[in-house]
Structures are given as structure tokens and as C-alpha cells.
Write a protein that binds this DNA or RNA. Structure first.
Ligand SMILES: [Mn+2]
Ligand SMILES: [Mn+2]
Ligand SMILES: [Mn+2]
Ligand SMILES: [Mn+2]
Lengths: 218, 218
DNA sequence: AAATATTTTTAGATTTGTCTAAAATTATAA
DNA sequence: TTATAATTTTAGACAAATCTAAAAATATTT
């Protein structure tokens, strides 16, 4: 049985492992958890002792199969609770993260599987992130960043890479939500902004926005 | 902001204060929390420091107004989550307590008020215990123990005093649930058992059962 | 009223998770 | 390739929550 702190560290290590084939550095973990490197070193020893990660001094951390499965179960809980908050309690998609960060630590397999059923076995959370099933399998969904799209094609918004309150509220102001559809008109070479035709208006999205919007060709 | 441990202690002190006008003894708290008296003494210092209780050495603990309000907010969360588990996730009434014991510590006023609305502002939890509202007001409902009833009168089961798994499962086996109605036929003077007419059958309930069933005359 | 028993508190440890400061190691630059 | 910089680990401290054992205070019996 893991503590809240152990679960939070493991989740961060899992996420960092997704885009890193080297070992995960102590500093990278410290930055994500918003703590000191020395605290991370201490926690690394505990997670290693529990066979959730492997680690050799100064060499970075690798997550084990057990660690990956355990992390996916925490992520499953996090994302299911986010769906609950948005679908059932009518939270906005920018209000759910902190509460889900607490709810993800509630320990009851019966609870989470009943919640899954109650929500109708959702495949994605309110930010378009996939929800692992009870076996730890993650549903695949085709998606690409808006920066990678082709002009004069139609796309649907299916997710956000940046889930910060600031970005989500920016999208709200532009009336862009998951499921919104538009045509990509122009990729501006100079500043990498993207102009789209959305709800009969031309809308220019900056590079930083386009880099954080997942879309799917329709 | 309180820790989980502080909240658990405060809740116990609140409940003990309901049936005790003397100060609450260190031992009484220790027994409820299932810990040692020395641990309770340590925690008493922390709760006193936060003005949730008052305490003079060797004199027992008294809960303050702030402590009562704070405790009622925790109890509100505990009972609302129990309603959620039973009404929405189809848990049995004997399966909810341990999970609610964790969920009650989630910190979000928006969450708990949205949950309250989602559940239709329930007045009682699955065991018939009243749910404090957002102001800390506790709805009153007339009820008496089955031991206090009169023969040849009709009653409805409205709550349980003992919320243990063993007692709840006993009631399940007798097909007695909240809302069940019956007529009290006889109070047996010798062993204080109570015989009722329930679903066209005579059923004799022992003293220990009758002492833990809340009913209301209908 | 004194002796005994019970309750409560204190003293000192332990575990978890954090910190700062310093040492050890690895990476980068002159 | 040595000097400098950055990263990582260790050492030692602290707060929270718990424990055991012993001391202090209160309650109960002879
Ligand atoms: Mn978390
Ligand atoms: Mn999410
Ligand atoms: Mn609790
Ligand atoms: Mn209850």
C-alpha cells in the first residue's frame, strides 16, 4: 500500500518516462513535484525498495512494469474523477485538476470500477486524455497537434496538451471546446501561427496555442 | 487547514460530546480512534492550539463553537458521500463507511455543495443519520428506539444506532431496511425482546437489536 | 487517611516527508 | 585535460503522528 506522496512521485515518473528513454533525472522529478532534489533522492530509495522503479546512483530512474501498472491505476482514478466532476457535478474543465489530485488517492477498487460503470465507461477525460481500463490498457485515439495539420482540411478538437487553467480559460474565451470542428486555412511560416475557419469566422491561433491543441482530421 | 488525523480526532470528540456534558476523557477518545492515550494527549495539544477544543491538564476535553462547526462540515461530507455511494454507485449500506472515512477529507467546498445538489439535497444518510447543511444546521427528525415503542402501534424503520457491518447484514437477512413498516405486537418483559408483525409474519427481535433500531410512529 | 488502582501526561523513539548545507559525482568549458 | 559548473547524494534537522515505558495526578478502596 502506497502513501499519497509515493503515488504522486510515481505518477510523475510515469509521465516523464513517456517521452524519455534515458533515465529520469532527479531534477526533472523535483521540478514537477515542486520540491528539492534531496527530497527526491529520499523518495527514490523508497520507490526502489518497493520495486516500482530501478535506480543506480547518479544514473537516473527507470520505471518497472509494476510501477507502470500502479501508475496507470492512479491515472485511471484521476481521470475518472475528472469525468465525474465535469459530467455529473458540472465543473468546468479548468476546475477539476486539484480536486482530482486528491480523489485519485482514495483506495477502493470497488469504488473506482463502480464509478467507471456509473459514468458509462468513458474513454477520455475532460481534457481528451485516455482513461486506462481496469487492466491498465490505454485506449488509443488518433490525434495530432494543430501545428502538424494540412491547410484546407477539416479537423475536430480532441484534446489539449497543456491542461493549465490559463490555457483552458483561453480556449473557453475563443469558444473552442473538445468536439469543436474547423477548417485549417493557413500556416503562417513567419511566426508559426495557424489561421482556422471556425463558426464562420477566421481565427488566428498563435504557435504556443497550436502546439497545445490536439486535433483529428474529419 | 487540518490534517486527516486532526479531522478524525475532532469528529470523534464531537460525537462523544453529544452524549456527555462532562469533559471528554483521553481514554474515551483513545478507544474510539483505536490508539494509545499518549497519542491522544499529543493531539489534544494540537487541536487546542487551533481553538477547536479547550483543555486543562487531567480535566477532559470540551469542543468549542469553531470545533463543532468544523466537525459538522466533516460529518456533512462523510454522509453525503455515503448517499452517493448507495444511491448512485449501488453500494450496500454496510459497504460505505470505510470509503466515506477517506472521502470526507477531500477539501473543496464547491465539490461538496455540488455533490449535495447532485444528490437532491438529501436530509439523511443511508443509515438514517441527519446530514448537516452548508451552514452546519442539522435537520431534526422525530425518532425513538424500538425498545421505547408501544404495543399495537404501527412504526416505520428510520435509522440504525449501531452502523456496524454485522448489524446491517443482520437486518438485511431479516429484510428490514429504512422505510420498512410493521406493527409492534409485544414487549417481552423477561428478556426485553420485541415481537413485531412484519410482512405478514411475526418476527421476534432481541433486546440488542431493538436497542439499535430507530423507528417512527405512523 | 493511607494504600492501591486508574487515568493522564511526559520522556524518549520511530517513520514519513520535507528542508538546508555540504560533499561527491558527472558534465561542460576553457 | 584540467578547471569550472551543474547535478546528485549525504548528513543533519524538523514537524506530524504514532509507539512504549515511566512519572504524575486523580480516583477508589480498604
Ligand atoms: Mn495526487
Ligand atoms: Mn485531465
Ligand atoms: Mn476519516
Ligand atoms: Mn452513516
Amino acid at each position: 500500500m502506497l502513501t499519497h506522496a509515493e503515488e504522486n512521485y510515481l505518477k510523475v515518473i510515469y509521465h516523464l518516462s513517456q517521452t524519455e528513454d534515458q533515465g529520469i533525472s532527479t531534477n526533472a522529478i523535483a521540478q514537477k513535484i515542486d520540491t528539492k532534489a534531496s527530497s527526491v533522492t529520499d523518495m527514490i530509495k523508497k520507490l526502489k525498495e518497493k520495486d516500482l522503479i530501478t535506480h543506480e546512483k547518479y544514473q537516473g530512474v527507470f520505471i518497472t512494469q509494476l510501477g507502470m501498472y500502479t501508475a496507470k491505476m492512479i491515472i485511471r482514478k484521476h481521470r475518472l474523477w475528472e469525468v465525474f466532476l465535469v459530467d455529473k457535478l458540472h465543473f468546468n474543465w479548468d476546475e477539476v485538476h486539484d480536486v482530482a489530485e486528491e480523489l485519485e488517492h482514495i483506495k477502493s477498487e470497488k469504488l473506482i470500477n463502480a464509478l467507471d460503470a456509473f459514468l458509462g465507461f468513458p474513454k477520455e477525460d475532460p481534457h481528451g486524455d485516455p482513461i486506462p481500463n481496469a487492466k491498465g490498457e490505454i485506449p488509443y485515439r488518433e490525434k495530432e497537434l494543430l501545428t502538424e495539420t494540412e491547410e484546407n482540411n477539416n479537423y475536430m478538437c480532441v484534446g489539449v496538451k497543456d491542461t493549465s487553467v490559463a490555457f483552458l480559460q483561453y480556449l473557453d474565451r475563443q469558444k473552442i471546446a473538445l468536439g469543436s470542428t474547423f477548417m485549417v486555412l493557413k500556416h503562417e511560416n513567419f511566426d508559426h501561427s495557424v489561421t482556422i475557419l471556425f463558426q464562420e469566422n477566421e481565427l488566428t491561433l498563435s504557435k504556443v496555442v497550436a502546439q497545445n491543441l490536439f486535433v483529428k482530421k474529419i
